[in-house]
Simulated assay, not measured.
Amino acid sequence: MKVLIKKEITSHIRSWRFIILLALIVLTFGASLFVSFSGLKDTINNAQDPDSTFVYLKLLTTSDNSIPPFHVFLNFLAPLLGIALGFDAINSEHNGGTLTRLVAQPIYRDNLLLAKFFAPLIIVSVLFTSLVMLMIGAGIMSTGIHIEFQEVVRIIGFIAVSIIYVAFWLSLAILLSIIFRQGATSAMTAIGIWLFFTIFFPIVINFIVRPFIPNPNYISEQEYLAWHELILNLMRLSPSQLYTDATTSILMPSVRSLGPVSMEQMVAAIPSPLSFKDSLMIVWPQLTGITAAMMVCFALSYFVFMRREIRC
């Protein structure tokens, strides 16, 4: 298992596609961090912002509207990273004739599949952890403000959620690489699924549900909020929406609800940050959904790969 994982890590970090994606992620991280640092003083001095004391969380969520913050960029780039690392995991070995040689060795098939899954996750984990450590180091050197324990816990939670999000797209790409013989077919299918859930799925939901929403002037506030809650729940069938909800609650301690809120609830709410446990309880369904989707895709990959007959 260790030999297979080392082989996969070596092949990934030497490939041009990983180098290109690494450069894109580092550039977007640097650009969003530069924008966050430029407006950091105004953010810290903003007394009306309950999250102003969490300086290092602000570095990941603050923007001047010229470019999105890093967690929004990652919502777009993380699926591409998972797809690029897994779309030819099996079919490239099959087309190259090395898969029959591997399974002919005293190696279990499940170990081969697990190595194809865990090796990219190790690379992604090291990448995200390194970027966040660079962000913390740059923040300490520029501001001199020490990082709080709650910020450390929330940043670790953000990294964990991002890794699970990449793992879902990686497991989906591996499943497609087992189903389709050609790497181009599996890559285009995975990208098509990503584009559908990221761009077209919200349009389809709004196109179907919006005509049935009654006129707000003829219904109560609770009924109007219930319709919008229905739209939001349907949107949460998309992995990108689940990731957005999870990172929003983890990186913004003042977020108390991810759905529509009535005027009575807004008046009674006190603008104060929540503990990490409370924020985690808010997004626990989202985290469970992403993890379950990842496990289902990997289980299907395992089932199909273990039953497939491998020939030259």
Rank of each mutant, 00 (worst) to 15 (best):
G30T: 03
V126Q: 00
G82R: 05
L175M: 12
N111Q: 13
T291L: 11
I174R: 11
F158A: 10
V283S: 03
A138R: 09
F303V: 02
R101P: 00
D64N: 15
Q241W: 10
E223F: 12
R181M: 11
N75M: 14
F303P: 01
A23D: 05
T43D: 07
I25P: 01
S220H: 04
S301R: 03
F180D: 00
A160E: 01
V72L: 13
G192I: 09
I250Q: 00
G157N: 03
M294D: 06
L112H: 02
S249Y: 00
G259E: 07
F201M: 08
I156G: 05
T61P: 09
M135P: 07
Q105G: 07
A104R: 12
P271W: 11
Q241K: 15
F197P: 02
L114G: 03
A299N: 02
L127F: 11
L121T: 08
Y302H: 08
L251P: 05
F73Y: 14
G82W: 01
V153A: 07
S125R: 03
G82I: 04
A138W: 15
F128T: 10
N233P: 04
V255Q: 05
L102Q: 07
A84R: 00
A269F: 06
C297M: 14
R101Q: 13
E148P: 04
N46H: 11
K7T: 05
G192D: 02
S254M: 09
I44M: 14
P273Y: 08
T28V: 11
D51V: 10
V3A: 15
L242V: 07
I205H: 04
A299D: 03
R308G: 05
Q105D: 00
S272A: 15
L27W: 12
L59R: 04
L112G: 01
S220Q: 00
T247W: 07
I147C: 09
L102P: 01
N46I: 06
L251I: 00
S171C: 10
I25Q: 02
C297F: 10
L24F: 09
F276Y: 11
A23M: 06
V124K: 01
Q150W: 15
L99N: 03
T185Y: 09
H71K: 10
Q182I: 14
N91F: 10
Y108P: 00
R109L: 06
T189H: 05
M295F: 15
R181A: 10
S249F: 07
S92M: 09
G137L: 11
A299W: 05
S125M: 15
A119S: 12
F207R: 00
L300M: 10
T100C: 04
T247D: 01
I123R: 06
L175I: 07
F197D: 01
A138S: 12
G259P: 00
S279I: 02
L195M: 15
